[in-house]
């Protein structure tokens, strides 16, 4: 014990228990995509591209009453310490699914029936919390593409390390800590669209952790908002 948090409550990277790593978001980074965003969250470097709404190919996949969403979360072979095979792993397949569901909760899929929407997430460099950073960036890319959404979706993780509930685990804390609990959240609707947990928490600890995660997502939302504002409304104004 005491290897990830010192007596003063400092973490391995010098942060306090409730402190987020630096987050930077850029909007509209890819020319060809209908919408795109780039995020640096800690050492995560992730690019997200959105294409659509558009014709569905092959056509029989089209859904008569709503938009058809495809989502790919993928890690580049050089994104981790030991080269990762470019083939999608079971982890990537699961994450593609939960990320799609977290975003689909916000997208007004009934507005464009029979169309397709592609969300491509490429993790160029990975750190702890890459699924959260992916959702955060994807939500900005969707707004950039003009896809109708009920709310933005902001995401971050909380966890338990050395017995402390902390915000936003980095890679080492994620690997060596006791609990990882990623959350995605729609701030204006007070709704959770992604919730996963592994590790052991008492009920009381879970309640506190969830509360901290919601506060973290609210901070992330502020960063999403200023990224979009800077991109659209600040140019020579």
């Amino acid at each position: 014990m005491g290897k990830l948090v010192d007596e003063q409550g400092r973490r391995v990277d010098g942060r306090g228990l409730n402190e987020m790593r630096p987050v930077k978001i850029e909007v509209g980074v890819l020319k060809n995509a209908d919408g795109s965003a780039y995020i640096e969250h800690g050492k995560n470097k992730i690019i997200v591209a959105v294409y659509g709404p558009k014709e569905v190919h092959p056509r029989h996949l089209a859904l008569p009453d709503r938009m058809f969403i495809r989502c790919r979360y993928h890690m580049s072979p050089f994104s981790v310490q030991e080269r990762k095979s470019p083939q999608p792993s079971r982890r990537e397949i699961e994450l593609s699914k939960v990320i799609r569901e977290a975003l689909e909760a916000a997208i007004m899929i009934e507005e464009y029936p029979r169309t397709a929407l592609d969300i491509f997430i490429e993790v160029l460099e990975s750190d702890g919390g890459s699924r959260g950073a992916s959702i955060t960036a994807a939500s900005v890319a969707l707004a950039n593409a003009g896809i109708p959404m009920r709310d933005m979706v902001a995401s971050c993780a909380v966890g338990k390390i050395d017995g402390h509930i902390v915000l936003d685990l980095n890679d080492q804390e994620d690997k060596e800590g006791e609990v990882d609990l990623p959350v995605a959240y729609m701030p204006n609707l007070n709704r959770i669209t992604l919730l996963q947990m592994d590790g052991k928490l008492l009920h009381e600890e879970f309640d506190r952790a969830l509360d901290l995660a919601v506060h973290g997502c609210e901070q992330i939302y502020g960063i999403q908002r200023s990224a979009l504002q800077d991109y659209y409304f600040k140019q020579d104004r």
Binding site: M149, D151, M186, N188, L189, R225, L228, Q229, Y232, F233
Partner: peptide
């Protein structure tokens, strides 16, 4: 006023 998705 300028808005983003979810703004009231």
């Amino acid at each position: 006023k300028y808005v983003i998705p979810g703004d009231v």
